[in-house]
């Protein structure tokens, strides 16, 4: 039986829900590239809740003696010609090309450019959505520092990364991009990142699952419209059924 009190509670709940949905989009609580599929409700709930709860949190950091002696990687080094050629030349020609909503689009970052910038190190756990994990030390340049140099336009909402492998791409929102632990990494455990672990340049997003930490990155696109990038769904992993937000 619906009493008057229950009707009032339902009405308040309905208004609150409607406000949450409309405001949620403005606050960046709705995940990128959401197409309203079967799992949209769960994805919005997870992303919104985790974003509100963990916005200022840092990924756990570990001590040197906790570093995994034999870190695991599921991929082999890319076999494509460009990669092999650049690998033989010590990746001196590798570039991360920046496009999109920045003051100076077309900037190309080399390994030397990254080495010249102020470095940041972290010993964090890489957790794969399959269930396995390892701990490693990563050194690189905080993406937030790079973005400050590039001066994103105020309307920028996402930073997308493309790789030397077609279809492997992903994106993060500006909060994650500016998080101090989000790195463009070039060293793993004190040496250049080995090819199977994504060398020479790998994105490191330790607050999310491994698939966000893209390997072999060579293009960066700052955008306000994720639907205009690649498959339009914010991530190459979405095609395989994985959610854009990978904090869970």
């Amino acid at each position: 039986m619906m009493t008057r009190r229950k009707w009032a509670a339902a009405a308040v709940g309905g208004v609150a829900g409607w406000t949450a949905v409309t405001k949620g989009k403005d606050l960046g609580l709705v995940p990128a590239g959401l197409t309203g599929g079967l799992y949209a409700a769960g994805e919005v709930l997870t992303h919104a809740t985790q974003k509100l709860l963990t916005k200022h949190g840092n990924a756990r950091e570990f001590t040197r003696d906790q570093i995994s002696p034999k870190p695991f990687a599921t991929t082999h080094p890319p076999k494509n010609e460009d990669y092999v050629r650049m690998q033989q030349a010590g990746f001196a020609d590798w570039r991360l090309k920046v496009d999109g909503l920045v003051e100076k689009p077309g900037v190309e970052l080399s390994l030397a450019d990254l080495h010249a910038a102020k470095a940041s190190s972290q010993i964090t756990q890489l957790v794969c959505e399959e269930g396995w994990s390892y701990i490693a030390e990563w050194k690189g340049v905080p993406l937030g520092d790079v973005l400050r140099q590039l001066q994103p336009k105020p309307e920028a909402k996402y930073v997308a990364f493309l790789t030397i492998q077609d279809g492997w791409w992903d994106s993060i929102d500006m909060d994650e991009a500016n998080h101090p632990q989000t790195l463009i990494a070039y060293e793993m455990n004190g040496a250049p990142i080995p090819p199977q672990h994504g060398g020479p340049m790998r994105l490191r997003v330790p607050r999310q699952l491994g698939y966000k930490s893209l390997k072999f990155i060579n293009r960066m696109i700052v955008t306000d419209d994720i639907r205009a990038v690649q498959n339009g769904r914010g991530s190459g992993a979405v095609g395989a059924g994985y959610s854009w937000y990978a904090g869970i």
Binding site: Y39, G42, E43, T46, E129, A240, G241, S243, I248
Partner: peptide, 16 residues
């Protein structure tokens, strides 16, 4: 066969 993608999405949605 790999069913991990949709399984994770449905897992979290049903957990909610």
């Amino acid at each position: 066969p790999d069913q991990n993608g949709w399984s994770r999405s449905l897992h979290f949605q049903m957990a909610w």
